[in-house]
C-alpha cells in the first residue's frame, strides 16, 4: 500500500543499500549523541509521534464520553458539548478517536516489532551465510513480497472471525516483513566484505557473535528505518481492515469510525466531522513516522538533506548553481576563462 519513503530501503543491485551508513567515530561519540534529534524533520516527527503515544495511553481515561454510549443528539455538527460532533446514534466522535488511538498504536507497533524481528532473522541470516541458505531464504522472502499483502490479510482475518487486535497485528506482521528482509540482506552482503568483519572472522569469533556484535550495530539505521516503515504500513492495514468491516465488533479504532461513517451515509448528509478527523489523525501519524524516517535517512546519508541557498555570483558576473554532490562545472560558451580559476574564487 505504501512505497518505502526511505532511501535506505532502496536497493541498488549488487551494491547494497543506497544510503550507506557511515562508520562511527568513537572519539566524537559524546558530542554527536543528540545529532539525530537536532535534525528538524526528525524532531518534529518524534514530537508528533510522542503525542500519539501519550493519547494511546491516556486516551480512554480522558475521553469525555463512552465512545459507544448513545446520545440524543443525532448527527450533530461540532459544538461545545461534542467537540467533533456526533454519529447517527448520538455517539461522540471525539471520544471515539481518543479511545481508538490505543488500538491503532498497539497494532502498529506490535506488527512493526514482529515484522522487524522476522526481517532481521531472515535478511541478516541469508545475507551473512550466503550459498544455499541465501538462495532459499531470499526466494522465500521474494515470494511473500510479490503476493499482494492486503487481499491476503483480508481473507485471513475474515476467516478468523472477529479477530482480536493482537491476532490482527500478528497477521499484519507475518505478511509484511519481506521488504525489510530484502533490504537487510542487501546491506549485510555489502557489510560482510568489510575489513572489520573479515578481521573478527580471522580472529576466530563465533558466527553468532559476529552477527550480534559486529553486524547488527552497523545495521541499526536500516533496521530502524524499516521498523518505522512497517509501522506506517501496519497502521494503514489495520484501518483498512476495520474500514471494510471485518473487525468492527472489537472496540474502536479510526477505521471503525470510517466504516460507520461510510455505512451510514455520512457523505450524503454532509457530516464531514464524522470522517475528516479520523483520516487526518491517520495522515498526521503517517507524516510523523515518515519525517522520522527522513531524519534517519539524512542522518545516515547527509547528501539527501535539502539544500539551502544555491545560487552564487562568480567574479565574472555569471550565476552558478552550487549543488551538493555535484562538481561545479561552468559552461564555457559565455565564459571563455578557464573553469578552474572561477571555481577557485567561489567562497
Amino acid at each position: 500500500m505504501t512505497i518505502p519513503t526511505s532511501s535506505i530501503e532502496q536497493v541498488i543491485p549488487g551494491q547494497g543499500s543506497m544510503a550507506q551508513p557511515e562508520e562511527a567515530h568513537p572519539t566524537k561519540r559524546k558530542r554527536q549523541r543528540f545529532t539525530f534529534v537536532r535534525n528538524k524533520k526528525a524532531a518534529i516527527g518524534l514530537v508528533i509521534f510522542g503525542v500519539y503515544v501519550l493519547f494511546a495511553i491516556i486516551g480512554p481515561w480522558v475521553a469525555p464520553y463512552d465512545p459507544s454510549a448513545r446520545g440524543d443528539d443525532l448527527v450533530q455538527p461540532p459544538s461545545a458539548g461534542h467537540w467533533l460532533g456526533t454519529t447517527h446514534l448520538g455517539q461522540d466522535v471525539f471520544s471515539q478517536i481518543l479511545v481508538g488511538t490505543r488500538s491503532v498504536m498497539y497494532v502498529g507497533l506490535l506488527a512493526g516489532v514482529i515484522a522487524t524481528a522476522l526481517s532481521i532473522l531472515v535478511g541478516v541470516t541469508s545475507g551473512y551465510l550466503g550459498g544455499k541458505t541465501d538462495d532459499v531464504l531470499s526466494a522465500f522472502a521474494n515470494v511473500i513480497l510479490v503476493i499482494p499483502a492486503v487481499p491476503l490479510m483480508i481473507i485471513i482475518t475474515s476467516i478468523l472471525n472477529n479477530a482480536s487486535d493482537t491476532l490482527i497485528a500478528l497477521v499484519i506482521g507475518l505478511t509484511s516483513w519481506s521488504w525489510n528482509a530484502r533490504v537487510l540482506r542487501a546491506q549485510t552482503l555489502s557489510l560482510r566484505r568489510r575489513d572489520y568483519i573479515e578481521a573478527s572472522r580471522a580472529t576466530g569469533e563465533k558466527t553468532w557473535r559476529i552477527i550480534g556484535f559486529e553486524l547488527l550495530p552497523n545495521l541499526t539505521a536500516v533496521i530502524a528505518s524499516g521498523f518505522v516503515g512497517t509501522v506506517i504500513f501496519a497502521v494503514l492495514s489495520e484501518i483498512t481492515l476495520a474500514f471494510i468491516g471485518i473487525v468492527s465488533n472489537n472496540g474502536w479504532n479510526w477505521g471503525t469510525i470510517l466504516f460507520w461513517a461510510q455505512g451510514q451515509q455520512a457523505l450524503a448528509q454532509s457530516a464531514w466531522w464524522w470522517f475528516v478527523p479520523a483520516g487526518l489523525a491517520i495522515a498526521f501519524l503517517g507524516t510523523a513516522l515518515s519525517l522520522i524516517n527522513f531524519g534517519i535517512d539524512e542522518f545516515v546519508s547527509p547528501r539527501l538533506r535539502s539544500a539551502g541557498k544555491t545560487k552564487l555570483k562568480t567574479a565574472s558576473g555569471h550565476t552558478v548553481r552550487m549543488r551538493i554532490g555535484f562538481t561545479p562545472v561552468l559552461s564555457s560558451a559565455a565564459a571563455p576563462t578557464p573553469v578552474q580559476r572561477e571555481v577557485a574564487k567561489l567562497p
Binding site: T240, L258, I282
Partner: peptide, 8 residues
C-alpha cells in the same frame, strides 16, 4: 503518501 487511499 501517509493518507489511506480510500479516505482520500
Amino acid at each position: 503518501s501517509s493518507v489511506p487511499y480510500f479516505w482520500l
